[in-house]
Design a protein around this nucleic acid. Structure first.
Lengths: 257, 257
DNA sequence: ACACTTCGATTTGTAGGACTAAACAAGAGA
DNA sequence: TCTCTTGTTTAGTCCTACAAATCGAAGTGT
């Protein structure tokens, strides 16, 4: 791993950033997660500048090349900006690409931030009904069939099980594909990345307060019947339910701490 | 620029990817644009794999380091994925981060794709009314004042002039900030990047069919009065107008070609 | 006080080599 | 024949070390 002989330090037992080891994870990848998470969680505040690249690379005992590639990926996501002489500095939050799935993942790595969850649900409230509406308008019969099956396995397994969550994702994914709208598809891909984390968080903390299957069913039926307004309405209800559950899970979690 | 002596080729007159020269643009940056544009416009189809990195770097007469950093930035935006032995391949469109401002820029570099424009406006139709609603609910007096001023300069200069477009951007930016919603702010940042290109495109091709200032004014007044429903409605009208204009500009452009 | 120059810190770009993962093919064993 | 293992090859990954362009700030001259 370390060139011809590293930096004189023994190859066994590296000092920092747990080694990628035998896993498929690349060194650059773990470094990216390491830095990205530290930035998104606010551990290094916007405006601050990271120590110089030679210095950092040395401290973490990795090469400048690997470090630079990780930093360039952060820059591509709008988290940092690096210029000669000034160094690499963390940008203000507004410049961040919050919609990037990886950024979302970092944001939800620790405990979910209540403000971010609220913002996210406000966004979903704006977008998802329109998604349902468009899906009702343009869905194909094959997509209806796929959603029916996903719904079936979902009601069998329940959302507490892995297989049920998979079915849930499949349901929403197909709904999205039915809109035929590229932009909405990528947006919701990011959102559902975040939603997956809150869902798993919910099922950890306290379980669900109401069965989500009936609401999914209403959405499905409206889409199948191509009733646009009903689809939008059903989706709104589904979202309200999810928001309530998330709020309660968050409150429970806060109470315990 | 070229190490000790490049690759033996004379330093004057480089073969490909116009050199960054005295400009502030970094070599990696122009390479990123070059590759990104080629991918987004479909010149290299999804599924295809780029030639090997040594080969490419050699052909373009740049170092592997610079090339790799550019590719890593593309990977961060979800455009490509590179693995040993397989090479670097372009991902399917659904995995692209279309909301990334740079990806948007590449998408609108050539002639705007009609389908993408439609998708974008469907998205705006879903999101922007909610933006107006939230802004009406939470706006501060200072923000109202800022919007008033932007509107004033905008009605003076008109959207055909640079200064007018700046004021327009300022108006929408402030409206966005008034929502207090981080997620919506980043989303609309991406969207307005695209909108800026269509706007400049519109003013090139045929001008505007209707004065946009009155519609902006209606939005402003509703937000100032904290009338959420009126704000949403006014925004919907504003969007309809913009969509009509864009459609006609697109049609004119197509007719000429 | 103002413009111009120099200097130093830091990123940018270059070169070439060693390591490793992954795909493919060939061979060994059942 | 089929599967499992083993080698071979390919291309990305990671490493070191050096040269150069940039830009801020301090210094210098007028």
């Amino acid at each position: 791993m370390a060139g011809t002989s590293g930096k004189g330090k023994p190859d066994h037992q590296r000092p920092l950033v747990d080694t990628p080891k035998g896993s498929g994870r690349r060194l650059r990848g773990v470094l990216l997660d390491f830095l990205g998470e530290r930035i998104v969680t606010g551990e290094v505040a916007p405006g601050e500048t990271l120590p110089g690249e030679v210095e950092t690379a040395e401290k973490l005992d990795i090469s400048r090349g690997a470090y630079r590639e990780a930093v360039k990926m952060l820059a591509a996501k709008g988290l940092v900006e690096s210029r000669p002489k000034t160094g690499t500095r963390v940008l203000e939050r507004v410049r961040w690409n919050l919609l990037d799935p990886e950024v979302m993942r970092w944001a939800f790595a620790g405990r979910p931030d209540a403000g971010l969850v609220r913002d996210l649900f406000e966004m979903r409230a704006a977008v998802e009904p329109s998604v349902a509406r468009l899906a009702a308008k343009r869905r194909s019969d094959a997509q209806v069939e796929r959603m029916r099956q996903a719904l079936a396995t979902m009601s069998e397994a329940g959302l507490t099980h892995e297989i049920g969550r998979d079915a849930d994702r499949m349901f929403h994914e197909t709904l999205l594909a039915a809109t035929g709208n590229q932009v909405m598809m990528t947006l919701s891909a990011s959102i559902s990345a975040a939603v997956a984390y809150t869902t798993i968080f919910k099922s950890r903390a306290g379980g669900f307060r109401r069965d989500p299957v009936p609401d999914h069913l209403r959405v499905f039926e409206a889409v199948a019947a191509q009733d646009e307004e009903a689809a939008a309405g059903a989706m709104r209800e589904l979202l309200d339910l999810a928001y309530d559950d998330t709020q309660h899970a968050l409150a429970d979690h806060a109470a315990k701490a």
